[in-house]
């Protein structure tokens, strides 16, 4: 989805996110990472997966309609520096926020390897954009319908074991994927960065709902992150905290569908509008 919001397009840096709301009185506030931005046209690109009521409403918005509330850019930008070879791992829609980071890491002179992971061919996004930027691109699918069959951690492990291991790994995707990327690089002591997407309300440090354990310390994803040293993140705690409202979210989603009669698969993680450009 492309959104005209000039001040965010001008100020945003790789790694930052926005919080939006589709109804000022009763809507929930959800964080979404910025996949691309063009300061000249004043547009930012948001990529989201329709997994709940708000993302469904967002997916149903037509070209030219208005998002009532859009706050950003939030979070600390990615540290962009020249380190040598950077392996960038993106899983599912995590490929979208990875895109501006790859752009910046490439521009500063790093050698870039991109590993894209998806469940199946039709869920691979940003492949062309990444191919243009990457020195090497690997696509992995769970079902083998495209690229190599298997998990993103397999080629990542091969890189770590190779003669020329990466100098840095950046992994963005589902929490479980990020957890296993961290476990893959840990024995090799390769600096690894992950971008966390936790439950948030305000996004400015006020609520603390997004807090995570980082090396035994409590940090707020919205103001201290969203990027952290993957080897310090307590992923198990984060995953459990992410499920805190699951029952209510599923119920809201189900009720929404009873009214809207949308054809998507309820309760499933996938939806056809994934990565759709409005």
């Amino acid at each position: 989805m492309r959104v005209h919001v000039p001040h965010i397009a001008a100020e945003r840096k790789p790694g930052q996110f926005v919080i939006l709301q589709v109804d000022t009185d009763f809507g929930e506030r959800i964080p979404l990472t910025i996949a691309d931005a063009d300061a000249a046209s004043g547009e930012i690109t948001l990529v989201f997966q329709s997994v709940g009521k708000t993302t469904h409403k967002l997916a149903e918005m037509e070209v030219g309609s208005h998002i009532p509330n859009l706050l950003g850019p939030l979070g600390r930008p990615t540290e962009i520096d020249k380190v040598g070879t950077v392996v960038c791992v993106g899983g599912g829609i995590g490929v979208a926020p990875l895109h501006p980071i790859v752009q910046a890491m490439k521009a500063i002179g790093n050698r870039i390897v991109v590993i894209i992971g998806a469940r199946s061919r039709d869920l691979v996004i940003f492949e062309e954009e990444m191919r243009r930027l990457a020195d090497e691109l690997i696509v992995m699918t769970d079902d083998g319908s495209y690229g190599r069959r298997g998990l993103v951690t397999e080629p990542l492990l091969e890189y770590c074991q190779s003669e020329t291991p990466p100098d840095r790994v950046i992994a963005i995707g589902p929490p479980v994927m990020m957890k296993f990327c961290a476990e893959t690089t840990r024995p090799f002591a390769i600096p690894t960065v992950v971008s966390l997407n936790t439950i948030m309300v305000d996004g400015t440090g006020m609520c603390g709902g997004c807090r995570v354990n980082i090396g035994g310390e409590t940090k707020f994803v919205c103001v201290d992150g969203p990027e952290f040293d993957a080897h310090l993140v307590d992923f198990d705690n984060m995953i459990r905290r992410l499920r805190a409202y699951k029952d209510q979210e599923d119920k809201a989603h189900a009720e929404f569908h009873e009214h809207e009669k949308c054809g998507c698969r309820l309760g499933g993680k996938s939806h056809q509008s994934e990565g759709e450009q409005v």
Partner: peptide, 20 residues
């Protein structure tokens, strides 16, 4: 303190008040 079910008052009240 990071168990599921522990909240700051800011979060709890913001959900209840501002977010209705």
């Amino acid at each position: 303190e990071n168990l599921v079910g522990v909240f700051s008052a800011n979060e709890y009240l913001t959900r209840a008040n501002l977010m209705k």
